[in-house]
């Protein structure tokens, strides 16, 4: 059975190892607002922000051009940093970029590589905890959005999604519905039906 659990709620009557939990002699307790599956013992966060990891793809905004480096707003407690001499693209303050994280500095700053400017288009911000659902298993969800709307999507694991071309409004609607209903089952089918019903 799957159920919504909150911090401090007991998931199991013995101490067992699950991410985002703490244990004592009497059991295992959630540390987050999440969705818990009693059978598979998996605890999926319903909320929560993204913390940078090496290899993550992110969408951000160039905040400041400091000459040798650029700082990037990633909608997170930590900034991104691009070292100017490592890149070939010409980027400026206020540009929207996609990049990947090479490594993290001690203070949490994410060193970004391979930045690419995203021109025009539209950004939306979603809860980072919902990004896996928006992508879907083996990209199924994102593929049915692009197939039905003709919109190109660039998805940052930091919760920023960039959309361009096609029916951007319909693609946005689909993404926001996935964000809101991420914890429900049968979502892929419902989104497909919604997209097909609203397709011009």
């Amino acid at each position: 059975m799957q159920r919504i659990v909150v911090p401090g709620e007991r998931l199991h009557d013995k101490p067992i190892r699950i991410d985002n939990t703490i244990t004592d002699n009497n059991g295992t307790y959630s540390c987050i607002l999440g969705y818990f599956d009693d059978q598979s013992k998996s605890l999926i966060p319903l909320e929560g922000l993204w913390l940078p990891k090496s290899g993550d793809t992110v969408v951000g905004i160039v905040e400041e051009d400091r000459g040798t480096t650029f700082t990037i707003n990633l909608n997170a407690p930590y900034r991104g940093l691009i070292i100017a001499r490592f890149i070939e693209t010409d980027i400026r303050a206020r540009d929207v970029i996609i990049a990947s994280i090479k490594e993290l500095e001690k203070d949490g700053t994410a060193i970004l590589v391979r930045p690419k400017r995203l021109e025009g288009g539209k950004m939306i911000s979603v809860k980072p905890s919902k990004i896996p659902r928006i992508i879907g298993k083996a990209n199924t969800m994102v593929k049915q959005i692009t197939d039905n709307t003709g919109t190109s999507l660039i998805i940052g694991l930091n919760g920023i999604i960039w959309l361009k071309g096609g029916n951007v409004d319909l693609a946005t609607k689909a993404i926001l519905q996935i964000e809101e209903e991420a914890h429900t089952s049968g979502l892929t089918d419902r989104i497909r039906e919604m997209l097909e019903a609203n397709k011009v």
Binding site: G60, I61, R94, V96, G120, K122, M123, I160
Partner: peptide, 11 residues
């Protein structure tokens, strides 16, 4: 800082 997801050009 929260990102403002629209740019001046977009508006």
């Amino acid at each position: 800082m929260q990102i403002r997801t629209v740019t001046e050009d977009f508006i």
